[in-house]
């Protein structure tokens, strides 16, 4: 980070990382951020640790009651659902001109994440840049150097176009645009460590067999019955995309990996889905393009990779 961030009109997104190493540093950036927002009539949401919520409440004192708070542990459970929850919150607060602009403190949870989860939450942070690109929102994502691995802090410089400090914002030199075709975010799928044999099914336009195969196989792999409709719905949506936009056919692979069912849907023909497919909030009234948003919301993790023209969508669904 070298140059001060450019001044920009308030209509679009401002997405900043806040790298802090003490309570004082956290408050020096977030308290003025909240107070200024409230003074301008903007809605303010703080999603952070319980400790930081306590610090903020005390520091904000007389205006504390005007800020909405949420515990990050509850808020950051699945990337698709979290992005959806932010989208709904922004929508509600700006609906009918209630607030012209919103401010969000969003501190992701990194503790207890395995390598894949960490990679996907990092991509989530990057996807915020495209998902909220047209939103009148200023989002600050705090990263606590006291507890986070250095690699996670380093990634904050790649996922945020700007870095917040107490007073000014600086352009991040390491920012990697999510929409770049060869960006670091578009990476091959890792090999999975499956327990037992892969269950494989090739499909064409008739998805009846796909749905019964998913239901039967997932049950045999230990998916709890109440989750079966979720996996059937999700695989059916991705397979429908393969049929309609990916060459008319595809291949499905199901297996169990630890606490999750992992399903790969590979389209047979050319398809150019972006890695952040399903992260862009659809207008309910648009004629198509809601399926992957719903699928990303319902799955624990969703990976999309295009290679040699064929797209693989990998869904991870928890067993219960």
């Amino acid at each position: 980070m070298t140059a001060p961030a450019p001044h920009r009109p308030p209509e679009g997104l401002t997405h900043q990382g806040l790298v802090y190493g003490s309570d004082e540093e956290f408050l020096a950036a977030t308290v003025p951020f909240c107070r200024e927002g409230l003074a301008r009539g903007e809605a303010v949401l703080a999603v952070t640790t319980g400790t930081n919520i306590g610090l903020l409440r005390r520091a904000l004192d007389d205006v504390s009651g005007q800020v909405e708070y949420a515990d990050a542990q509850d808020w950051y459970q699945r990337p698709g659902a979290t992005l959806g929850a932010y989208h709904r919150w922004v929508d509600r607060r700006t609906a009918g001109g209630a607030h012209r602009r919103v401010r969000v403190i969003g501190e992701p949870v990194w503790r207890g994440r395995d390598a894949l989860e960490t990679a996907e939450w990092t991509r989530y942070e990057s996807a915020v840049n495209v998902a909220f690109a047209d939103c009148a929102a200023w989002i600050i994502c705090p990263y606590d150097t006291r507890v986070l691995p250095p690699a996670v802090v380093a990634d904050a410089h790649r996922t945020h176009p700007e870095l917040a400090t107490d007073g000014a914002a600086l352009v991040s030199d390491h920012y990697a645009d999510p929409a770049d075709a060869d960006s670091v975010w578009s990476r091959p799928l890792a090999p999975v460590r499956a327990e037992g044999e892969d269950a494989v099914l090739s499909f064409g336009a008739d998805l009846t067999d796909v749905r019964s195969f998913v239901a039967d196989t997932a049950t045999a792999l230990g998916l709890t019955p109440h989750k079966t409709p979720t996996l059937v719905f999700a695989v059916n949506e991705v397979a429908t995309n393969a049929v309609q936009h990916g060459g008319g056919a595809g291949r499905l692979v199901l297996r169990r990996c630890g606490p999750r069912i992992v399903a790969d849907v590979v389209s047979a023909g050319p398809s150019h889905a972006a890695w952040y497919l399903g992260y862009l909030p659809p207008d309910p009234r648009q004629p198509r393009g809601h399926g992957m948003w719903a699928v990303r919301h319902l799955c624990d993790l969703l990976e999309v990779h295009t290679d040699d023209g064929a797209t693989t969508v990998r869904l991870h669904v928890g067993l219960d």
């Binding site: 959806g84 709904r88 929508d91 409709p229 979720t230 719905f233 659809p282 207008d283 309910p284 009234r285 809601h290 948003w293 719903a294 919301h297 319902l298």
Partner: peptide, 15 residues
């Protein structure tokens, strides 16, 4: 219930 959830998360419940 799953499909009612889908209605909400896509925003069809705003209609």
């Amino acid at each position: 219930p799953l499909m009612a959830q889908v209605v909400r998360l896509v925003g069809f419940d705003d209609i």
